[in-house]
Design a protein around this nucleic acid. Sequence first.
DNA 1: TATATATTTAAGCAAGTGTTTAATTATACT
DNA 2: AGTATAATTAAACACTTGCTTAAATATATA
Lengths: 119, 119
Amino acid sequence: MSEKSRRDLCDTYCPHEDKVARYKDRVLEVAGLSELFRALGDETRTKILYLLAEEEFCVCDLATILDMSLPAISHHLRLLRTMRLVKHRREGRMVYYSLADSHILELIRQAQEHFEEER
Amino acid sequence: MSEKSRRDLCDTYCPHEDKVARYKDRVLEVAGLSELFRALGDETRTKILYLLAEEEFCVCDLATILDMSLPAISHHLRLLRTMRLVKHRREGRMVYYSLADSHILELIRQAQEHFEEER
DNA sequence: TATATATTTAAGCAAGTGTTTAATTATACT
DNA sequence: AGTATAATTAAACACTTGCTTAAATATATA
């Protein structure tokens, strides 16, 4: 957006120029965080991570538990792998996945807390 | 997916039937959580929540800080409102938004921690 | 080496998401 | 009342996402 049109948004009182200037840089701190949340923003992936927090599973187990096709699960696992949220080890024909670290489980727990207070 | 095709996924070793049966119900616990994460899974919304965690802002302030149009911001605020993540109060022509509760800020903090350890 | 199986990859498609522009609503001021 | 302004809503569009089917890899076994 241009400087011009931005100023046009609110002519009189708003924007509270001091505030605005102060915070323009601050927001950069959270840039990129949403990528992590987006990974969790799919029910299948949340479930996968939740499961992997308990123990390791092969792709086929996950597909069966979540009632989805192998390619679909594999697709999600690839995304989670790219984001380094899960790790995998091969054992013969099968590939076992597990959580890369426990931060994610903490995120899920936190979200659950929020949810429980909603009611 | 049908029972048939599901069984076809892995014929021999997999699925580990006991595991699978045990976890099929467990995953229901996180159903719905992804909705919350999806709300955070957009950079604009994460930024909005991050800002509102500091102090209240009118729609126009947010639009200016985030360099976006009013309708775009309003659109995101509506979603956050529907999810009860933010609350608002009217003061004259302006509407001021603030965080509905602090759980969300905790989520953001947690995510930031995860991010910092990545490097 | 040939066949079977667990997983991954690729291509195509339907559905969802975020933005824009234009029109509408709500409040304030003259 | 009439005009101006902050915010919301609606419609349209481009873009992304997640699934499906089909083909390709990788490992194990006969």
